[in-house]
Design a protein around this nucleic acid. Structure first.
Length: 113
DNA sequence: AGGGTGACTGCTA
DNA sequence: GTAGCAGCCACCC
């Protein structure tokens, strides 16, 4: 079991950007990183993985650049992924059973300015 | 202060 | 389409 740490300024930035994503829309780790002035998508992934505000932050709206879902609830595939898929479909995002985004037009760029 | 890890991305074979 | 390698930033021990 991993201990929880207070969210850093960077993480809070990531969560703030995440909350800007409207319902029925999704974004990639990279776009999210750029919106917060970060040139690394991996750092964003770390923040989401450490995401202490699980359901408060719509981390399920973030997918990989290959149009496939990344992970969910600290896992990179498994039952949690299926849950994520269901959630996205519920919001109007069509995704394949494998986690592939069937409608890339739903991808948006966040504007923090 | 130093080293390793990761819910990533891009290019090449 | 799949597989391997390198680059990248922030976090953790």
């Amino acid at each position: 079991m991993k201990i929880q740490r207070p969210p850093t300024a960077f993480e809070q930035k990531v969560y703030a950007a995440l909350l800007k994503i409207p319902s029925g829309r999704v974004t990639t780790y990279k776009l999210l990183a750029q919106s917060i002035r970060c040139h690394s998508s991996q750092a964003v992934g770390q923040a989401l993985k450490r995401n202490p505000s699980a359901p408060e932050v719509p981390c399920h709206r973030v997918i990989r650049s290959n149009l496939k879902l990344g992970g969910y609830q600290g896992q990179t595939g498994g039952a949690s992924l299926q849950k994520k898929i269901k959630l996205l479909k519920k919001e109007g995002v069509d995704v394949d059973a494998a986690g592939l985004l069937l409608n890339p037009k739903l991808l948006i760029k966040i504007s923090s300015y």
